[in-house]
Computed example of a mutant assay.
Amino acid sequence: MRIAHFCDSHEGRPDGVSRSAALTVSLLRAAGHEVDLVHPGPLLTRSAEAGRVRSIPVPRRQVRVALPSPRPPLTGPPLTGPPDVIHAHTVGPIGMTGFRLAERWRVPLVMTWHTDLLAYADHFPEIPTGAAWCARQLRLGWSAAEFLELTRPGAVRRHRLAALGQAMFARLAVAIAPSPKTAAGFADFAPLPPVCVLPTPVLPVVTVPLARLKRPGAVVLSVGRASAEKNPELLLQAFTHLRRTVPDARLVMLGVRQARAALCRRIAELDLAASVEMLPPVPPGEVTAYYRAADVLAFSSTTDTQSLVLAEAEATGLPVVAADPQLAERPGGGPPRPTCPPEPAAFAAALHRMLTDATLRAEVIDAGLAATAAYPPELFLSRLVEVYARSRTAELPA
């Protein structure tokens, strides 16, 4: 089977979308499928070289934006003709190219909904702008008043973004949700195509030795961006509560690159400077080492659609506490992972129990390891190929 993947997250970016797309492509190629990956590349790259599209970096962000084109730019290498299936991972310029080529070539379009755009619109001003651009690319015929609704926070903008989502889902042969939480959120985009819940699996990673955490005190680890949509304020407030009952606890925030100055100021205001360490993103092997050196993973985001870090931590035997009850279900099944309401006191209490209740801790570790073992990459791949086969029998949009 020949599948073309379209992703606006550039290669090597430390986010779940880029890693999920790269892993999916790698697994498909290893299984003998012919796979193209279209993604952002350097500004001076040759057109369509190795699937890379010319892009420019966004200042102060780990993001590259592909240069838009009035028509789909990839009609030569690597896409020399229609694939059997087009798989979009994003809805930026490259993702929209996938939408337009699927329509032009009359091939089924599959999409993995990696990002909760309704939630992210409250944190990123570029999302309403990008939504307006997508509406034009999809030729939705909105009036000026309808476009202006994207500038109005709250229910008005949410309604307009839901209308855009409905138009996108109407073009899909199959919609992939990386978690039951995400699948439930698809209700905003009804009527829906067939929906498949298909989480991204985790791969074993060779651990790089790590000595810097070998200091006294329980280590609470956070992995990922600390920008507003990840709710670092909840994490810091909960940690403040936790230190009242676990005075020697330390918080390690791994993967912080954006908004470091503001975060440092907030840490100082809460009198946590001596107990919090911020570290930049590190390679996967080093991330695994941090998992193994920590005592609990604290996950404060309520906007994630799956969060690979949860399963990654569980695969190393690190218990997690998530402040999002909708992410309780593990990809491999079994008992739900520990969650709590997104409130500082509740989050702190859940972390305290995980650090001090040996019986609970052992049960959670065993459940996490069992769930990871029950959902190997081979199972993900077989289900994904079934999705592609199903999409090829679906009736294409008129």
Score class of each variant (00 low, 15 high):
A177C: 08
P247Y: 15
A218K: 01
P180Y: 03
V206A: 11
A211G: 07
P191I: 15
L235R: 15
P247M: 14
T245N: 13
P191C: 13
A211L: 05
V223R: 10
P191L: 14
E233S: 04
A226F: 14
H241S: 07
V219W: 09
T245V: 12
V219F: 10
V174E: 04
S222A: 12
V174P: 01
L203C: 02
L210F: 04
L221P: 10
L192C: 09
L234E: 01
S227I: 11
V223F: 05
S179P: 03
V197D: 06
L213H: 15
Q237L: 10
A187L: 05
K214D: 09
R243S: 05
V202Q: 00
T207W: 12
K214E: 01
G217A: 11
P201R: 10
R212L: 06
T207D: 08
A187N: 10
L192K: 07
F186N: 02
L172V: 08
L192S: 00
A238P: 04
F239G: 06
F189Q: 06
I176S: 11
V208P: 01
R225L: 10
L213P: 11
P180G: 04
E233H: 11
T200F: 01
A211M: 06
T182S: 05
T200M: 02
L203W: 00
V246L: 13
P199W: 02
P209M: 05
Q237R: 13
R171G: 01
A175G: 04
T207N: 06
V219K: 15
L234C: 08
T240V: 15
E233K: 15
L242Y: 15
G217M: 14
V202A: 04
S227N: 14
L203V: 03
A173H: 11
R225A: 11
C196H: 08
F239T: 00
V195F: 12
F169Y: 07
A187I: 12
V174R: 03
P201S: 06
A211T: 15
K181D: 00
P180Q: 07
P180N: 02
A177F: 08
K181F: 02
R244W: 09
A173F: 04
A183Q: 08
S227E: 09
